[in-house]
Every structure is written in C-alpha cells, then in structure tokens.
C-alpha cells in the first residue's frame, strides 16, 4: 500500500511537471479554499496554519478559510476534511499524531492514512526539551540519567497525555538510556510545568517555548533537546543525540503538515506544494514560526510520505514497548 502511494506520487509529480501550467487546472482555485485544523483557534497548530494560509491566500488570489474542528488529538479535523472533500478546494493541516500513532491509540479513526490522505508538504517541526526544576540540583543529562537510574521509577515525568508526543518521546529516551521512569499524564504543557516547579513531579519533555521562559526566570533547567541539529529558538541547549551515552541518531520531533484528501487532483497538490514551500522560504515567516517554537521544514509530498512511514514505524515500536510493560 505504501509502495502504491509513493508510486502514485512519483507519477503525479512527473505528470505535473509536464502538464503545468497549461492544464485544465488554470482556473484553480475558482472558489475560496477551506483548510480544516483539528485544534481550537489560538492553539499552536492553528496559529501555524494561519501564518501559512494568510500568505497562501495572497498568492492564490482567493480567500483561505480556516475551519477549526478540534477533538481527539486532531483526528476529528481530518475526518471532517474527508467528509467535506470532493471539490478540490478542501484541505487540512495536521500534527504528526493522527498521521502516525492515532491508528494505534484509537479504536477507529475512521480513515486510513495511506489510502485517504495525500501529503502536500511538511510545514514545520518542533523538538522537545527535557526540563527539570532548577532546585532539583540536576544540571545535565548525565546527572539526570544517574538520578533516574538509581532505582526503577526513582523519577517521575509528566506528559500531555497517554500516547502523546511528550509521553512517547520520554519512553523512547528511557529505553535508549536504559531507564524506567514513572509516567504521570497531564493534559497540557502548562500543567506539566506548574507541577515540575511545584516539585510534585521531577521532569518532563516539553515544547521549548513552554519551558524557556521558566529557564529565564531561573526556576527550570533544560538538560537536552531531541532534534538532530541545534534548534534556533534554543541554540544553547545541548543535543540529546550522542551525549550521555545516547545514540547519535536519536531524534524525536513533532511536526505539522499540510494535507489534502487522497482524490485531490495531482496538479493541485503540486501547485500547493510549490506555493507553500515558497512561503516557508520567506525569512519573515521563518522568524515568526521560530518565535512560536516551530522550525520550518518545507519538502516534497514524497519526502513527507517517507517521514510518515519512518515515524509510524519508530513510534509503533515505542508503543509496543509501553504496552508490553
């Protein structure tokens, strides 16, 4: 199934390069675009989508309307996009969860990633940082691993929910470092940070933007970051990859992507990909996204399909391990 998607995408892009610009798609877009976002207005994925669609609207000469359909970790948004699909003007943005792990976590998501969704491009990625309270006395990754390794469940960590990126990242980290930590699920990073500062839990993997203002205020230490390269918003935070005995290829990132229903015309997808990757090259946009904790990550539909496959496998293995415990 994965192969056929890839093949279709390769064919699609080949076709587009031949067909554009003198194809029947000349009159696209002929009406306002609708972009479904599976998170509430004002949330991080929503704000990201708004930054992109605002520029997209200028470039396409049509209004782009954001439709917030929050729920089930972003799954509702995709479901609603698929229900409304068919006119070539309905799209969506999504985070990695519904595209990689939701199928494992939920009874029935109501869609099949490979069959129902056509990737357009990744928009941006965000690493997570490992944070502890500054009065914990833990200063670096070695210190953390030593403290956590003293006995099983010696340290507890907070996440934003069972199966969330923060939870799975922590479990991946624990597995690579040979630790066992006690998982305490919360519902938002704000709750996790309060709980860490209040001394109730010991640590947490969280979005850099959620931790940095507390680091500045001197109440939190960040010990490491999960990206494979230094992150623009927090360039001084050391990479977890390759330090304290962790593997060189350690990488755990959340991402945000632009998607289309699978039956969308290939030429339209190619056009959108071109426009959006252009938008993401804009330094102003890059800076704005970095301020919100996102690093732009433009790419082709093929590279996005590949990322979905890689992440699905990686997180699938982590979920297997968690379930086996």
């Amino acid at each position: 199934m994965k192969q056929s998607t890839t093949l279709r995408l390769v064919l699609a892009s080949a076709l587009c390069s031949l067909a554009l610009p003198a194809s029947a798609q000349d009159d696209w877009p002929s009406q306002p675009l609708r972009v479904f976002v599976g998170f509430p207005a004002g949330s991080s994925p929503d704000v990201l989508a708004r930054v992109v669609t605002e520029k997209l609207s200028e470039r396409l000469g049509q209004p782009v309307v954001i439709e917030n359909r929050p729920g089930a970790g972003g799954v509702i948004g995709i479901q609603q996009m698929l229900v409304s699909a068919g006119d070539g003007h309905t799209f969506g943005t999504t985070i990695n969860g519904p595209m990689t792990t939701s199928q494992r976590m939920m009874d029935d998501t109501g869609f099949d990633v490979a069959e129902d969704i056509a990737p357009v491009t990744l928009l941006a990625t965000s690493p997570l940082v490992l944070a502890v309270a500054s009065d914990s006395g833990i200063e670096d990754l070695e210190g953390f691993i030593a403290a956590a390794g003293a006995e099983p469940d010696a340290l507890s960590y907070g996440s934003v929910g069972q199966g969330s990126g923060a939870h799975l990242t922590a479990e991946l980290f624990a597995a690579e470092a040979g630790l066992s930590m006690l998982h305490i699920p919360f519902t938002s990073y704000a709750e996790v940070t309060t709980s860490i500062i209040g001394g109730e839990i010991d640590a947490g993997f969280m979005a850099p933007s959620a931790a940095l203002s507390f680091v500045e205020a001197g109440t939190m230490n960040v010990l490491g970051i999960t990206s494979s390269e230094p992150f623009g918003q927090a360039p001084d935070v050391p990479l977890i990859a390759g330090s304290a005995g962790l593997p060189e290829d350690f990488r755990a990132e959340l991402w945000n992507a632009f998607i289309a229903p699978a039956d969308t015309d290939e030429a339209i997808i190619a056009r959108l990909n071109t426009e959006i990757t252009d938008i993401l090259e804009d330094p102003g946009v890059q800076e704005q996204m970095l301020g919100m904790g996102w690093q732009v990550a433009p790419g082709t539909p093929e590279s996005m399909a590949e990322r979905i496959a890689v992440d699905t496998e990686m997180w699938g293995a982590v979920i297997d391990r968690v379930e086996a415990q």
Binding site: P40, G42, A210, S213, E216, T219, G291
Partner: peptide, 24 residues
C-alpha cells in the same frame, strides 16, 4: 502561562502569534 480555561488558552494564542510567550 497557565490558561485556566479554553478561552484563556485562545488569548494566549493571540499573544504567541505576536511572539510573546506569557510566563514568569
């Protein structure tokens, strides 16, 4: 930076768009 309810979270979002991270 702890929003008490979804509406507060929305207002935080409006600040974050402007690159302001509410916090200590």
């Amino acid at each position: 930076g702890i929003p008490g309810d979804p509406i507060m979270a929305l207002m935080l979002g409006a600040l974050i768009i402007h690159g302001i991270q509410p916090g200590p």
